[in-house]
């Protein structure tokens, strides 16, 4: 028997997948190239959301004008993160890199608390709702889904069709040899950090339409983003994209038939089982 609520849950899962895919995109790019996990990725998104809040709600900038500024702002944070924290630790043990970006996570949370206070803030923008039969689809989520898809394609085209993109791919394949062949690895890392940060900024512009911003919003997205990146294969953007939708569908459809929490339980069980069967992720890169 046709169940419209199942269809709605399925579509909601796809739309949630779009949000998660957008979150995973930048994180995977950075790991794929620089081989460092930005544990503080969700906190960078939080800074971008605050940027959007202040530009749009406090300084009354139009959304479309504020968005590029917020994207650039988080892009610059990405560059600064690389210059100040990552670059000195490039040859350090992975655990040290992880701890360092973990420290940045705590720093950004504390900084946001001091600068912006603990209040929840939102833009107060109401996106229209698309009504199809008895189903209602969130325009904000459709936008996030479309942007994630477009972002994925844009990053793919950039990496495959441009000289810089080719250099990025090359250095991600062999960090030792490429500098010997004339590639300026420092510059490539900076460009990658800028793009990774900008993708976090892009996610911020879309998430701020759906969520309140507060200094600890990263707790909502950080762990799940990291799990999706690992599930898809750290550094594998297509893997992250696929994993986002699998994860989101399990949460959404699972949550419809059982308690909501069971949806998350099944998603995490799927993650654990996958880690046993394919420890490097669903679509792992070959090292």
């Amino acid at each position: 028997m046709f169940d419209i609520y199942l269809l709605e849950a399925g579509i909601n899962g796809i739309l949630l997948g779009g949000v998660l895919a957008l979150l995973a995109l930048g994180c995977n790019l950075v790991f794929g190239v620089i081989d460092v996990v930005w544990i503080c990725y969700a906190e960078m998104i939080m800074m971008g959301m605050y940027g959007m809040f202040y530009l749009v709600s406090v300084y009354h900038w139009p959304f479309l004008l504020a968005a590029p500024v917020a994207i650039a702002l988080v892009g610059i944070i990405g560059v600064l993160l690389h210059l100040i924290v990552i670059a000195p630790l490039l040859n350090a043990a992975p655990i040290n890199q992880l701890l360092a970006t973990g420290g940045v996570l705590a720093f950004l949370q504390a900084l946001a608390t001091v600068l912006f206070g603990i209040d929840f803030r939102n833009l107060g923008i109401r996106m229209p709702v698309i009504e199809v039969s008895d189903m209602y689809l969130s325009y904000a989520r459709l936008l996030a889904f479309g942007t994630a898809l477009a972002g994925m394609i844009a990053v793919y085209l950039f990496l495959s069709r441009t000289y810089t993109g080719t250099a990025i791919r090359a250095i991600s394949q062999d960090r030792q040899i490429m500098p010997l062949m004339g590639v300026d690895s420092r510059k490539i890392y900076l460009i990658t950090s800028l793009i990774g940060g900008s993708l976090a900024g892009l996610a911020a512009c879309l998430l701020v339409l759906q969520y309140d911003v507060h200094p600890f919003i990263g707790l909502t997205f950080g762990p799940i983003t990291f799990m999706i990146c690992v599930l898809g294969g750290l550094g594998n953007m297509i893997g992250g994209f696929v994993a986002s939708f699998i994860f989101a569908e399990i949460i959404s459809v699972g949550g419809l038939y059982m308690d909501l929490e069971w949806g998350y339980v099944f998603a995490f069980v799927f993650f654990i089982v996958t880690m046993f069967v394919r420890p490097r992720g669903l679509l792992a890169r070959k090292s």
Partner: peptide, 20 residues
């Protein structure tokens, strides 16, 4: 009657269930 985590990133399944 349904519980959810306070940090859940998505409650759309709960909304769908309520509609049902």
């Amino acid at each position: 009657k349904e519980g959810y985590s306070v940090t859940a990133p998505d409650l759309s399944s709960l909304v769908t269930k309520l509609k049902r």
